[in-house]
């Protein structure tokens, strides 16, 4: 079984955006290798078992808010912190599950964790990055990355 690649992340991301964040195809997620600004909201799921690692999404604060309002079909002003945590948690759950389906059978997906940056940096000191997809959405940075903590071979 090969590891997930940036192309895989892109295919998955495209489907998530078409389904939930941009059904009309007007505001697609635009990949770019530009270094994102300081992320503010981080959502992650862990994969354990045959493969061990994490799928992480990071958002700028406005991007996380946009994501929550698009997912829930609400106005920006109505969105609460809880809504944001719930929404980005669900997004990383969906992306993480799809990433897991590319990994060896018999891996388990954790429930999502959501953190703001001050608690969130380098939560997984022993992990190495497998692949990432960076880009912007409505001019706000979002990045998705896959990390493994066990050498696969």
């Amino acid at each position: 079984m090969t590891s997930p690649t940036t192309d895989d992340l892109q295919a998955i991301t495209e489907q998530v955006w078409l389904s939930y964040l941009d059904p009309e195809g007007i505001n697609p997620f635009l990949p770019s290798e530009e270094a994102p600004g300081m992320p503010c909201v981080i959502a992650a799921v862990s994969v354990t078992g045959a493969w061990e690692g994490h799928v992480v999404m990071s958002f700028s604060e406005p991007a996380s808010k946009l994501a929550a309002s698009a997912l829930m079909g609400m106005e920006d002003e109505e969105v609460t912190r809880d809504d944001i945590a719930d929404a980005v948690g669900e997004l990383v759950n969906v992306i993480g599950g799809n990433v897991k389906s590319l990994l060896p059978d018999g891996s388990l997906l954790s429930l999502p964790h959501v953190a703001t940056i001050d608690e969130g940096v380098n939560k997984w000191p022993a992990a190495v990055e497998v692949c990432h997809l960076r880009g912007s959405w409505q001019n706000e940075p979002i990045a998705i990355s896959v990390w493994t903590s066990k050498s696969t071979g």
């Binding site: 939930y20 829930m72 079909g73 809504d83 719930d86 948690g89 669900e90 759950n93 429930l111």
Partner: peptide
């Protein structure tokens, strides 16, 4: 569903 956002999406449909 444990996500309120997802429950809302499904509820609407």
């Amino acid at each position: 569903d444990d996500s309120r956002a997802m429950r809302l999406i499904l509820r609407r449909i």
